[in-house]
């Protein structure tokens, strides 16, 4: 529970860390679109090389990125099983009598897995190199144009930053309640289904009530300091685009254009 590495900000000073969060979010979105363009293995090769280059620049250890893959392993196996059972095209690779495995099933699965891995890598780079507060600030700025059609940009950003802020608190709270219930003889690891359900209820109910309590306290504390979501406000931190941010976004667009070209040509 304490080693949730996925997306945790790592404070370093690299060219990637210094980029404007808005540019990074935009580039990430463009890159995600690029990944979904069926540009074949060459396309994915190119994207992978670009991503590895960015990872190298950001000085994130590959090991840490691989750790983020771990929770996906189960899903990948699940995908493989579904595909093997359903796809019956391509060359017959293996005939087990009760089950025939075709090449297309394997290739399709690989496609999905590669896409997923690339997506995880990109989002992980974003969250590992951007402070959570900068991230929400970036989201707020990017959503500002949509305010005209009634999107509550500031409120959304505030909700995200509060949620991020409370993740460690809630984890701590969970551990404490788990330990309290273990002391009362609850076994979270073993036991029959009925015992398991009762164990989870003994964790969930206090956790909910504590979270609601915290929310109430936080709301009061914010009101006590005169917080009004609609009020015009100034900022301590202002975001400023630099040339490198422009280069990043243009680079992302070029990557997208390249993928589209590849998809059409091949």
């Amino acid at each position: 529970m304490n080693n949730i590495v996925f997306g945790k900000y790592i404070p370093l000073d690299t060219p990637i860390h210094r980029l404007d969060p808005r540019a990074k979010i935009l580039a990430m979105l463009i890159a995600l679109v690029a990944i979904f363009i069926p540009a074949g293995w060459y396309g994915y090769g190119i994207i992978a090389v670009v991503i590895l280059f960015v990872i190298h620049l950001s000085k994130i250890k590959l090991k840490v990125i691989f750790k983020a893959f771990k929770p996906m392993i189960f899903m990948m196996c699940f995908l493989l099983v579904i595909n093997v059972l359903s796809v019956k095209e391509g060359a017959l690779l293996l005939d087990l009598g009760f089950l025939e495995i075709y090449s297309k099933a394997i290739i399709d699965t690989l496609y999905i897995i590669v896409r997923l891995l690339l997506m995880i890598m990109i989002t992980t780079i974003l969250t590992m190199t951007t402070k959570p507060l900068d991230l929400t600030l970036g989201i707020e700025y990017l959503l500002t144009p949509f305010k005209k059609i009634g999107v509550p940009a500031h409120e959304i950003a505030m909700i995200i930053s509060i949620a991020l802020r409370f993740i460690p608190t809630i984890i701590e709270e969970t551990m404490r309640i788990m330990n309290s219930q273990k002391s009362r003889g609850v076994d979270f690891e073993e036991g029959k289904l009925k015992e398991k359900i009762s164990a989870i209820i003994s964790l969930i109910v206090p956790l909910f009530s504590v979270s609601l309590l915290r929310a109430d306290e936080l709301a009061n504390a914010m009101e006590a300091r005169g917080y009004v979501p609609q009020a015009p406000r100034t900022r301590y931190r202002r975001l400023k685009y630099e040339r490198r941010d422009l280069i990043l976004v243009i680079g992302a667009f070029l990557l997208l254009a390249l993928m589209i070209t590849l998809a059409i040509v091949i």
Binding site: I177, N179, S180, K182, S183, D187, S202, V205, P206
Partner: peptide
Amino acid sequence: LKELRRKVGLVFQFSEYQLF
């Protein structure tokens, strides 16, 4: 360990949050 936990009762700090 469960048997040990029966013999040694631990009341946590802010134990009121364990009620459910």
